[in-house]
Amino acid sequence: MTLATQHSHPAEPVQQMKRLESLDLSTSFEAAIATTPLGELRSTEVQTLQINVGKRCNQECRHCHVGAGPDRREVMPDEVVDACLSVLCEREIPNLDITGGAPELHPRFEEIITTAARAGRHVMDRCNLTILTVPAYRHLPRFLGDNRVEVVCSLPYYNARETDAQRGDGVFQRSIEALRMLNEVGYGRKDGKSILTLVANPVGAFLPAPQSCLEDDFREELRKRHGVEFSRLITIANMPIARYLDWLDRSGNTDRYMAKLVSSFNGAAALSVMCRNTISVRWDGALYDCDFNQMLDMKMLNGYPGDIFAFDGALLHGRRIAVGPHCFGCTAGQGSSCGGATANQ
């Protein structure tokens, strides 16, 4: 069964959920969590506001859980941007995580960053790298550095073959060019002032390599072959939703990949999954437990505030998190979160 009718558009969330629920897994995520000291997944205090400012992107990656691409039209409107910034600054949430699509394409991207930075927030830009090589955006490395933004860049592997297979022809070379631009303005230096984080995810239906080993490999290979430096590398498992789920189906890998995620369930990894201290905001202001639930349109349980305009940090603290079969993607092996591995292997 293939979910998508076109490569660029994953199936509707309801179809994706049906596909996930149709899988014959040996256990449910709820049952797996019940075997851990957590018992169930509940949130802690909101530490990070993750805003998905839209689905427009200059790339169309084969694993993208957002289904982002150049022809997407979803863009966060002004009133939602304003509400996000109000919540961020008035509620003392320490971290702002800006994602997309390519968040740099949002017309108020720079304003969002300067506002958050001025308020003393730690800002993360989830950057696809190649956008920094587009003429209209080549000034961004310096801008990001001036505002002490942590640039969190996608680079699945240190070779062109693997990177281009997942992200498109020529992406690797343009990513290297962007990394050099970031290095030139101070990113990745040992002084730690401008943090350049690489995000590696597997190019296929397998789990990520151990984070520390892969970081050593990337550091050696990127330095030796391209003269590129970075601050740290994090690994993220591919989430079985959207385009990646479609690829799993088309390549006949779905059952085996899901069985691997389930059999690799690691209770220790569940302690630090991102949904516990993050609130995810959709381009239209709707709130979710995480970016993946957002893409599946999996609402928060028990009628918690549905959008950023009704944000209530106290109410959100301690809430039970909505889970599904895809959640095994965050708890397999060394774990996987927006901050990378969540447990030591």
């Binding site: 592997y157 073959r161 693997e162 397998f206 789990l207 390599a209 151990p210 080993c213």
Partner: peptide, 12 residues
Amino acid sequence: STKCLEKGSNVE
């Protein structure tokens, strides 16, 4: 083959 990929090796 799977294990090598999951340990970070590449096809070369």
